[in-house]
Design a protein around this nucleic acid. Structure first.
Length: 711
DNA sequence: GACCTGCTGCGGGCTG
C-alpha cells in the first residue's frame, strides 16, 4: 500500500530496480511520511533500506520547483556522504532534482553553482553548517531558508555527545531562518528502548516525533578463549590460534587499540608468510593514511574471491559496510555492550548467514567483563545515554558563533536567541546573563554603544581553523616513505631516529624526524615495536560491573567458553565463594588483608572515580584499580563507618574541593574542548556532570552493604 | 584501560 502513495516517477524507479516488495522499514515509513507532518526516527539494522525509506516518500511529496534547497541530509562522516551521494543521485535522476555534496573535501565549483541557483538536495556535515554560519551567514538563509525536510543519518552517533548538542543548536538556528516548520527524519541503528527519547530530543519536538522500529535480529555464535598475557606483547599461542581461526575466512579483528591493531596485523602476516598463506593482512585505524584505508575498504568491499584479515579499531565499527565479512574477532573485552553489538553486526550480513564472533581474553578480569557484555548483549541491554543538562561549554561555542553570524547584536537579542534555542532550554536566563558578563571581562566579547561584538580573544577563537568542531584532536606527525604518506602518528617517546615502528601493517625504521614540517621519514625494516599512542581511558557502565559480580556468584558452565576460560571463571568464583551476595547493585565484598582492606565496588568507572576523589578528601589512602573495580584502603575494618560518615561531610562542599583541584590541575577539564575557556565556576559544573558521577557515588555509599566472607 | 569524527580563505606554484 506504501507503493501506491509514491509519485509516478518514484514508482517507476522502484519498478526499474526490480524490487519485488518494499522492505519492512520502507513499508512502515512511506505512508506515515507522506500523510503526516510528524518527525520520525527510523531504527533498523544497516543495509535494511533506511535511506530509501526516508527519500522515496520525501521525493514524492516535496515540490522541487520552489526556490531554495528543499532537503538537507546531514551525516557524521564525509565517507558516508560520498557513499550516499551515489544512491541519492540515482533516486533523483529521473526527477531532475540536483544533489550537491557540501563538505570540506567537496569541490568548490559545485558549491558555487549551488549558490547561484539554490535548489534540490544537499548532503552536509555539522561542521560545514557551523562554518557557513560563521563565515557566510547570508548563505545559510539563501540556501536553507525554505527547507522542507532534514534527514539525519546515523543519528545514534550524535546522542549523548557534545557533537550532538552542537548539531541540535545548529538545527535550531536553521529553523529560525525558516518561516514554516521543517520536518526531521532520523536514521538510526537500534539504540535501546530507553534511549529513543534522546533521539527525539535532537529533532527539537519530542511530542511530534515517532519511532519506527524494525527489530531484525540475527543468530550469533560466540566462542571464548583464554591465553594469559605475560608481557606487553600478545602471547604467541594466542596468535597461532588466531591464525588458525582466521586464515580461511574474511575477517575483521578488533584488538581495542591502534598499537595492538598494528601488532596483530604484522604478526599474523609473518605467520602467514612462513606457511605460504594469503597476503591480505591489513591494519585500519585513524593513524593509517586515508588513501591507504580507502584502498583496503575498496578491496574488501568488492572482492568475493580472496580471504582477508583487517585488524582495526572503531573505524570499521560504523559507517561503511563490508558485506562479505564472515567472522569477527574481539581481543579482550569491548568497553561497552553497544560496541559489541555494532561489531557483531559487522559479520554475517548476507541473507541466511549468522554472525560469528571469537572472543579472546589475555587477562582474567577482561574475560569476566567480556562474558558480562555477552550476557547483556543476549538480554538486549544497551547502555543508557545521558545528555548533558547544562552544556555551558557548547553554549560558549554557540554564543560566539551567533555573535559572529549577526556581526554583533544587542544583549537582549543574544539572550533571546539562546533562550529560544532548544539546546539551552535548561540553562537559566540569569546564568546566560552571568556568562555574558564573564565573556566581556575575558575579552571574548566587547560592548560598543550597547552592541555586543566579538572581542580580541573572541575573534582569535572564532577565526581559528579549530573553531568548527567541538571535539579535540591530537597533534600528529606525518609518516613518509619515499614521498608517499603512510599515516599520522603522535610524537611519543618511542619516535626517535633509528627506532623501528609498526604502521599500516608494515615495519619501518625511522631515518629522520623533521620538527619544522612535522614529518617522520621512514624506510622498510625487518622488526619493530607497536607504536605507543596516548589515550585517555573511557568508562565502563555500572550495569556491566554488576553483571560481572552476578557471574561470579552464579554456578554452572557456559557453552560458549572453552575449557581454559571456564577454568579461569571457576577460579575467580572460588575467590568470591565465601560471600553471600543478595543485591549486585549495593553488596560489596571486602577482603581483610594484613595491612589493608580490599573493597570491591563492582560499579561504573565514573562512580569509582568519584569515590576515589571523595576518599582522598578524607585523607584516607585509597588506590583504585578500575579494571577489577577494587579499592585498596589503608584502614582497619572497624574504621569504615567513620570513612563513610566523613565522605558525606566532605560531599557538602564538593564544589569548593573541585575548584581547588582544578586550580592545581587544569587537565581535569581536558575532555571538553571549549570548557577550558569558561570561568572556573562553570568548569566545575561541567566536570561534576560529565567526568564524575557523584549522585551515583553517594547512592552507592548510602546503600552499601559491606559483605564479609563467611568463615 | 580506548577509539572516532571535521575544517575557511587566501596565496603561491604548477598544468592545460
Amino acid at each position: 500500500m506504501g507503493y501506491q502513495l509514491l509519485s509516478e516517477p518514484i514508482r517507476k524507479y522502484v519498478r526499474d530496480k526490480g524490487w519485488g516488495e518494499l522492505r519492512k522499514i520502507q513499508a512502515a515509513a512511506i505512508p506515515r511520511i507522506i500523510n503526516t507532518d510528524n518527525n520520525y526516527i527510523l531504527a533498523s539494522r544497516t543495509a535494511s533500506g533506511k535511506t530509501e525509506a526516508a527519500f522515496l516518500p520525501i521525493l514524492s511529496k516535496v515540490d522541487f520547483n520552489e526556490r531554495g534547497v528543499q532537503v538537507l541530509y546531514i551525516s557524521p562522516l564525509i565517507a558516508l556522504i560520498n557513499d550516499q551521494f551515489f544512491r541519492i543521485e540515482d533516486l533523483c535522476r529521473n526527477l531532475e532534482i540536483s544533489v550537491t555534496k557540501w563538505h570540506g573535501e567537496a569541490k568548490r565549483s559545485l558549491k558555487k553553482n549551488l549558490l547561484k541557483n539554490p535548489n534540490g538536495v544537499v548532503l552536509i556535515t555539522p561542521e560545514s553548517i557551523e562554518a557557513m554560519f560563521v563565515n557566510a551567514p547570508y548563505n545559510v538563509s539563501a540556501l536553507f531558508g525554505n527547507l522542507k525536510y532534514i534527514v539525519i543519518d546515523e543519528i545514534h552517533s550524535f546522542l549523548g555527545v557534545d557533537r550532538g548538542l552542537q548539531l541540535m543548536s545548529l538545527l535550531s538556528r536553521i529553523q529560525a531562518v525558516n518561516k514554516s516548520k521543517i520536518t526531521t527524519i532520523g536514521l538510526s541503528a537500534t539504540i535501546g528502548d530507553g534511549n529513543y527519547i534522546e533521539a527525539k530530543r535532537i529533532t527539537g519536538d519530542i511530542e511530534h516525533t515517532k519511532v519506527l522500529l524494525d527489530r531484525g535480529k540475527k543468530e550469533t555464535e560466540a566462542t571464548f578463549k583464554y591465553f594469559k598475557n605475560t608481557s606487553t606483547e600478545l602471547p604467541l599461542e594466542l596468535l597461532k590460534d588466531l591464525y588458525k581461526e582466521t586464515y580461511e575466512n574474511k575477517v575483521l579483528i578488533f584488538p581495542n587499540s591502534r598499537g595492538r591493531a598494528e601488532e596483530v596485523a604484522v604478526k599474523l602476516r609473518k605467520i602467514s608468510d612462513r606457511v605460504h598463506g594469503h597476503k591480505h593482512y591489513y591494519s585500519h585505524h585513524s593513524s593509517v593514511d586515508k588513501e591507504i584505508r580507502e584502498n583496503i575498504e575498496h578491496f574488501a568491499k568488492n572482492n568475493e574471491r580472496f580471504n582477508f584479515c583487517i585488524s582495526c579499531t572503531s573505524t570499521l565499527e560504523l559507517g561503511i559496510d563490508i558485506g562479505t565479512v564472515e567472522k569477527i574477532v574481539q581481543i579482550d573485552s569491548t568497553h561497552s555492550v553497544a560496541s559489541l553489538v555494532q561489531r557483531i553486526g559487522r559479520s554475517g550480513r548476507r541473507e541466511g548467514e549468522k554472525s560469528i564472533v571469537n572472543l579472546y581474553a589475555t587477562d582474567k578480569w577482561s574475560l569476566l567483563q567480556s562474558l558480562a557484555c555477552w550476557n547483556l548483549y543476549k538480554s538486549g541491554f544497551l547502555e543508557p545515554i545521558t545528555t548533558a543538562k547544562k552544556p555551558f561549554d557548547i553554549l560558549l561555542h554557540q554564543l560566539l558563533s551567533i555573535v559572529k553570524q549577526l556581526s554583533g547584536c544587542s544583549r537582549a537579542e543574544l539572550i533571546q536567541r539562546i533562550a529560544t534555542n532548544i539546546t539551552f532550554q535548561t540553562i537559566a536566563a540569569t546564568e546566560i546573563n552571568d556568562l555574558i558578563d564573564a565573556f566581556l571581562e575575558l575579552d571574548y566579547l566587547e560592548d560598543i554603544q550597547r552592541e555586543l561584538l566579538l572581542g580580541i580573544e573572541g575573534e582569535y577563537i572564532v577565526n581559528s581553523r579549530e573553531f568548527y568542531s567541538v571535539f579535540k584532536t591530537e597533534v600528529n606527525f606525518k609518516v613518509i616513505h619515499s614521498g608517499r604518506k603512510i599515516g599520522d602518528i603522535p610524537l611519543s617517546p618511542q619516535v626517535r631516529v633509528d627506532e623501528n615502528i609498526l604502521l599500516a601493517a608494515k615495519i619501518w625504521k625511522i631515518k629522520d624526524i623533521d620538527f619544522k614540517s612535522s614529518k617522520i621519514i621512514v624506510i622498510p625494516a625487518k622488526d619493530g615495536k607497536k607504536p605507543t599512542f596516548f589515550g585517555n581511558g573511557g568508562g565502563i557502565d555500572k550495569r556491566i560491573r554488576e553483571e560481572m559480580l552476578a557471574i561470579l556468584i552464579s554456578e554452572g558452565n557456559y557453552a560458549e567458553l572453552d575449557e581454559k576460560s571456564q577454568l579461569v571463571i571457576d577460579n575467580m568464583r572460588f575467590d568470591f565463594k565465601g560471600f553471600s551476595i543478595q543485591d549486585c547493585r549495593f553488596d560489596c565484598p571486602i577482603f581483610e588483608k594484613e595491612d589493608h582492606l580490599e573493597l570491591y565496588t563492582f560499579t561504573g568507572t565514573r562512580i569509582n572515580q568519584s569515590l576515589s576523589f571523595l576518599f582522598e578528601l578524607t585523607g584516607v589512602e585509597a588506590s583504585l584499580d578500575d579494571r577489577s573495580s577494587v579499592f585498596s584502603l589503608e584502614l582497619k575494618r572497624s574504621e569504615i563507618p567513620l570513612l563513610i560518615k566523613n565522605v558525606s561531610k566532605k560531599y557538602n562542599q564538593i564544589n569548593d574541593f573541585l575548584k581547588a583541584e582544578l586550580e592545581k590541575n587544569e587537565s581535569l577539564i581536558g575532555f571538553s574542548k571549549w570548557g577550558s575557556y569558561l570561568p572556573l565556576f562553570y568548569q566545575v559544573e561541567i566536570i561534576k556532570e560529565r567526568h564524575f558521577d557523584f549522585d551515583g557515588a553517594m547512592e552507592l555509599l548510602n546503600n552499601m552493604n559491606i559483605i564479609e566472607p563467611r568463615l
